[in-house]
Write a protein that binds this DNA or RNA. Structure first.
Length: 456
RNA sequence: GGUCGGAUGGCCGAGAGGCUAGGCACGGGUCUGCAAAACCCUCUACACCGGUUCGAAUCCGGUUCCGACCUCCA
């Protein structure tokens, strides 16, 4: 958390929110933990090894914790806008230094880590003697050791390691390093992977059901998490590892060098050279769910606008279900759609298929509204249930409350103008009718010297 | 170079041996004072080259292209 939320951050929360909602729909009690990385880690890419939080803190002239806090708040706000349910627990790495140290000690006493100059490294080769390192990501340790093609990379701190594949559990901090804590090995800070292992273990136990994340974290992060936890507890910490794929923009990966990074706020405001217009948080959510989570997802104006229009169609249909004419007979079996939705979700969370089914339901609604299809009471109720449960409940798509205030005021002003015109032409029947109708609806109209005003 | 994942109609995106999702756009129509919405119809695609099969977008082999990851950092 050292920068504002951008398109690369957007997919995970939505995908896992739908997973959570679906599990809850199935009757499971879900404990959702989402951790915040707020301890400094070294900056790569040949930079002088300054930690990212510290660097950002220096640039903004604030405390590192302020940086983390600012962007955590921004991230959560983005999630709220996209109707992502807040996690049950949101632990911070900096608040779990003790747990991380304890875990490191436990790994050391198992003989799978060693200390060098105040830093502690995980001994991958020792671990691999009895366990499989690289299984999750399909890596073969021998290939990793060979490291073909990477000889040219100058990596920091390599000389301290017994083996290049070893990774840091604890790093010795130089005095000028802003974030540091006392430990059995001196002043320092935890390695990247250990925070997740320590926090998930604390709140979810030695073994829990599902661990999520982006595909980019598969190796080495999650692989190392498995190794650490296994070294401590003897178990792979998660029964299932769920990885979502990455996002591309106009067919290209999002990268600083390509200058195609789009911030969440830029998407919502349309304030970016690559964006033809603003796209709402719900459009974004719907757009994400129209693709399967394991495939790459490509952002383009055309694709986003297609999603926006499609979503509108779906919402229109859902909104009119309660007003559908009811017949004695039914020409459509809604249960088929409900069953298909559940089947699709059980098939590796296939939200695009669920959405396709919802569009089918929308067509049914529209046909019924047009009087071209007969639906009986139970069919209409089933349709209502379908949209409530699936569109709003599980997919988490809700009506957006954008600009309602301004629109309402515009409508009232228009009516007041029409009433003023009626009064001017002495058409008091019409002017009174407007006021009476508005009063009936709960508005109070006050005529003043400078025209009329309204309140609700 | 290695590992893994991709390539589907104008665009986005499901599917995974026969039943040829869905959305958006385009075109035609119904409706309509005009417009919009809605509805109906139309548009039959699976990177390339071989092979297996009665039948391949789907399986096998090869080729090309794209992406992620590849010991630090997140």
């Amino acid at each position: 958390m050292y920068g504002p939320p951008h398109m690369g951050h957007v997919r995970g929360p939505v995908v896992f929110d739908v997973l959570r909602r679906y599990l809850e729909f199935l009757g499971y009690k879900v404990r959702h933990v989402r951790n915040i990385t707020d301890v400094g880690h070294l900056l790569g890419d040949g930079d002088e090894g300054e930690d990212k939080l510290g660097k950002q803190a220096r640039l903004e002239q604030v405390e590192p914790m302020e940086v983390a806090q600012t962007y955590t708040v921004a991230y959560n706000e983005m999630c709220r806008q996209m109707n992502v349910l807040p996690p049950g627990i949101e632990p911070r790495a900096s608040g779990h230094i003790i747990e991380q140290i304890e875990m490191i000690e436990s790994i050391m006493s198992a003989g799978l880590a060693y200390e060098v100059n105040g830093s502690v490294y995980f001994d991958v080769l020792a671990y691999a003697k009895t366990r499989d390192y690289g299984k999750l990501s399909g890596r073969v340790l021998e290939d990793l050791i060979a490291g073909v093609g990477n000889e040219a990379r100058e990596l920091e701190g390599q000389d301290e390691k017994r083996n290049p594949n070893d990774f840091a559990l604890w790093k010795n901090a130089s005095p000028e390093h802003i974030m540091q804590w006392s430990s059995p090995w001196g002043k320092g800070y935890p390695g990247w992977h250990i925070e997740c292992s320590a926090m998930s273990r604390k709140y979810l136990g030695d073994v829990f059901d599902i661990h999520g994340g982006g595909m980019d974290l598969l190796f080495p992060h999650h692989e190392s998490e498995i190794a650490q936890s296994t070294a401590c507890t003897g178990h792979n910490p998660a029964h299932f590892w769920v990885h979502h794929n990455m996002i591309t923009i106009n067919g290209q990966k999002m990268a600083k060098s390509l200058n195609n990074g789009i911030l969440a706020d830029e998407l919502f405001s349309g304030n970016h050279p690559l964006l033809a217009k603003a796209y709402s948080p719900m459009t974004l959510r719907f757009f994400i769910l129209q693709a399967h989570y394991r495939g790459t997802l490509d952002f383009s104006n055309e694709a986003l606008q297609a999603a926006e229009k499609g979503l509108q169609r779906l919402m229109n249909a859902a909104a009119q279900v309660s007003k559908l004419p009811v017949s004695d007979t039914s020409e459509y079996n809604v249960a088929d759609i409900l069953n298909a939705c559940e089947r699709s979700m059980n098939e590796d969370l296939n939200t695009p298929q669920v959405i396709a089914k919802l569009f089918e339901a929308a067509r049914v609604c529209n046909s019924a509204a047009d009087g071209k299809l007969k639906l009986d009471r139970s069919a209409v109720e089933a349709l209502n249930n379908l949209f409530q449960t699936w569109l709003h409940g599980i997919l988490g798509i809700q009506t957006e409350e954008k600009g309602n205030e301004a629109a309402l005021d515009g409508v009232l002003q228009m009516l007041l103008t029409m009433r003023a015109d009626a009064k001017a032409s002495k058409n008091y029947t019409l002017s009174d009718e407007i006021r009476n109708k508005l009063t009936e609806l709960g508005f109070s109209i006050k005529d003043g010297k400078d025209g009329s005003s309204w309140s609700l």
